[in-house]
Simulated scan of single mutants.
Amino acid sequence: MLDRQQRYGFELREEFERSTGSTWPLNIGQVYTTLDRLERDGLVSDMGTDEAGHRYYAITDSGRQEARNWFATPVAPSAPPRNELAIKLALALGTPGVDVAAVVQTQRLATIQTMQGYVRARREADRENNAADLSWRLVLESLIYSAEAELKWLDHCEAKMPSMAKQSSVASAGAAAPKVKPARMEASS
């Protein structure tokens, strides 16, 4: 964003949130902390303050190169992201009294409703057909595809549940049975 023009922190936050449809809101303190770090690393320069007290920043040549490198490097998560839904279902399978099918259906309904909201927002953005909103439409499409993938995964889980329930009940029965040490036979003389 600084490659386009000099900005101050609040403008950067507003531009980021506009570009992403406020999907991932930024804390203004985080923005200024990041600007301080970028300045320390020589990636941005402090251009001074205006009459309203706004401190403007500009990208440096090193910053421009770092941004190009970032855009050219694929995103590769170092570890799988924490997925609360997968954790919930994994724990529900082994928890007595939890209706796993109901957990899946509740999540499916919530995911469908969320996805419908994303689809409506995308339709509105498409109607406006504003080139500046392309970034927001791309974020919306990413959210829609993620919701579709979650629904597909929930279908998969639901299809697996009958066999998982059998395995779980067999494992639970085995775990519930007391472990008895076999008696040692002593030879009598």
Results as ranks from 00 to 15, higher is better:
Arg37Cys: 05
Glu39Thr: 04
Glu39Phe: 07
Asp41Gly: 05
Asp41Gln: 14
Leu43His: 02
Asp46Pro: 08
Asp46Cys: 09
Asp46Val: 01
Met47Asn: 11
Thr49Glu: 14
Asp50Pro: 03
Asp50Ser: 02
Glu51Lys: 11
Ala52Trp: 07
Ala52Ile: 03
Gly53Ala: 02
Arg55Ala: 11
Tyr57Phe: 08
Ala58Met: 07
Thr60Met: 12
Thr60Ser: 04
Thr60Tyr: 02
Asp61Ile: 06
Ser62Asn: 14
Ser62Glu: 15
Gly63Met: 01
Arg64Lys: 11
Glu66Gly: 04
Glu66Lys: 09
Arg68Leu: 15
Phe71Asn: 13
Thr73Met: 13
Thr73Arg: 11
Thr73Val: 02
Thr73His: 07
Val75Gly: 05
Ser78Ile: 10
Pro80Val: 06
Arg82Thr: 12
Leu85Gly: 02
Ala86Pro: 04
Ala86Cys: 01
Ile87Lys: 05
Ile87Val: 08
Leu89Lys: 06
Leu91His: 13
Ala92Ser: 00
Ala92Glu: 10
Val98Cys: 03
Asp99Tyr: 05
Asp99Glu: 03
Asp99Ile: 02
Ala101Gln: 09
Ala102Pro: 02
Val103Glu: 15
Gln105Cys: 03
Thr106Met: 08
Gln107Tyr: 10
Leu109Trp: 09
Ala110Leu: 11
Gln113Val: 08
Met115Tyr: 07
Gly117Leu: 10
Val119Gly: 00
Arg120Gln: 12
Arg120Pro: 01
Glu124Asp: 14
Glu124Gln: 14
Asp126Met: 13
Glu128Cys: 07
Glu128Phe: 07
Asn129Leu: 06
Ala131Ser: 14
Trp136Met: 01
Trp136Cys: 01
Arg137Trp: 08
Arg137His: 06
Leu138Ile: 07
Leu138Ser: 10
Ser142Thr: 11
Ser142His: 12
Ser146Cys: 10
Ala147Lys: 00
Glu148Ala: 12
Ala149Val: 02
Ala149Asn: 13
Leu151Cys: 12
Lys152Asp: 12
Trp153Gly: 07
Trp153Met: 10
Leu154Tyr: 00
Cys157His: 11
Cys157Val: 15
Cys157Arg: 14
Glu158Thr: 08
Ala159Cys: 12
